[in-house]
Design a protein around this nucleic acid. Sequence first.
DNA 1: GCCT
DNA 2: CAGTACG
DNA 3: AGGCCGTTACTG
Length: 624
Amino acid sequence: MATKATRGNKRGRISAPSVRPEDEQIFKGLSFFYVPDNDIAPARRLRINRAKEFGASWTRDLMTATHVVVDKKLEYKDVEKMWPKDGFGGRTPPKVVTEDYPLDCIQFRAIVDASQRKYLVNGQPEVEEKEQEKEPELPTPAVDFGAQAKSKSKSKSAVSSLPLKPQHHNKGKWDYVPRKGTPSQNGDTGIQTHSPSKGSDKAGHTPLLQDELSEYISMMQEFKDLPLDVDEEEDAQSTANESDAQLDLDHRSGSENESQRARRSSRRARPTSKAIAFEDRFACNRAGKKDANQDNPNARTIEILQKMNGYYERINDHWRTIAYRKAISILKQQSVKITTEEEAYRLPSIGRRLAQKIEEIVTTDKLQRLECAEEDPTDHALQTFLKIYGVGNKIAEQWIAQGWRTLEDVKQHAKLTPSQRVGMEHYDDLNTRIPRMEVTALGDIVKKAAAEIDAAVQLIIGGSYRRGAESSHDIDLIVTKPGTESVAELRAFLSRLIDQLERDKFLVARLASSHAGGDGSKWHGCCNGEYRPIWRRIDFLLVPEAELGAALIYFTGNDIFNRSMRLLASKKRMRLNQRGLYRDVLRGPNRAKITEGELVESRDEKRIFEILGVKWREPWERWC
DNA sequence: GCCT
DNA sequence: CAGTACG
DNA sequence: AGGCCGTTACTG
């Protein structure tokens, strides 16, 4: 719409600049000196006029210019030679920029930073700047663990070496529920025994790189081999599964669409410099930690994209949310600031649109789309409503459609479920974060009560606490006991524990509890805080020891980490959930049953990582 | 929004 | 069943 | 065109 004015001239001759409304006069007070100093070429004449539309004046006198706008085909020395020998007489010399500069300003309706690298004229020395390598032309050769870019064809990772499932269709359910317990005692648990590539050379050679987890895998590999001079990354995983039998399907030739892959440069640093390697190790090492954020060079970009993501979440634009999440995840792993669209576009999970947004953020320090979104008057109400426990998009939307905008409106008019009522009445409490120390203390209270009921029961605090968070949104407790093989063996205990804690006035509300007799395994509710009468969210998860590993992965998270693990598993024709890691079964049209042998591992957290081909990561390294 |  | 919540 | 985590678990 903003371009309408010029559009009118489109096929006619270039007319005099129309004047833009006041608030678009971004160039007011600036005068541009163009190099070359003419407007003969229609294209640049158009650009000059366009700058005028936005308030610039076109000067033919270098001495009065605030900016020197240089044709991209010219060199800096062409500009330099017109520089007055006796200087500018005390006034600040004009800034030298390429012709992109005014265009960007216009596009973003703002005066952007003229000193950015992308506006440097050919041959123009950089002002200062330190890091930020120039990156001549070609992006660095990809060194993704797909590693096709390497001349050696040896590099493979276990990750890509298992046969990949094209997709997992079959939304139907099975009729059989596999039994508990991991057959880990039968040394055969290894998947490898079953990894006969089925001769499906074609099926199993895609180096999946698209999901979040694989990004981390690649990082971990980078980390791993950085002390060496980065020979190859392959044996990174060989330890992960002695299943090197599967290497047989590793001979994927260059068959695959490497061109496609090659487009995307790896975020792996080239091993050219130890300094770089070290830096990257540092970044990668911290990428998985919770505090990897603040000094990330892309922190501001991430911040804004996260806001945008939050908006789409509220809007319930599910798939867009996923795209943003992936992009943010990738961005967090970058050790270098991503400045331009092209730079961003090279990264996996970042397409044209996000790349453009990233550039806009970097150049203008904001995102128009976001500001626009935040102006939506209903958005504030949406944010408020969604923080009520038990209220999701549907309800929130309905309420807003009713015209309600505040909690007061809801309180007066809405019909609430019991859970939502708790969420309403303790809105502030439940949206207050819990300091780590308090989580510890509350956990101790529960542990003490539990010990009096059954000394053998173990309680493990999971969630963000286990990841080392300084504060948590709730308290996640895994309830397990040595020797147990099914949830049923723990249910009686939980029942007694809950009763006791309610008598103690520790537990104050139930939100979602498995009804006795059922086969439930979780209990959600509220407890009193450590000191003040403040309510805290608390979750119990019943876990037989036989499933502890899988449950720990689930309950430790974070959510994105879990989803990537599960996605990765599915690509390998396996399934991961809170009960265990399973190998997928070939299901007939009528959903043939799963046989018991399908459970691969559930007891040992590390084994699940291994079998999945993921290098072990400590809980605090699971921040995505 | 991105990817296959 | 849809909706919500859990990591 | 169709997938994007989980035959998740719980509520009404």
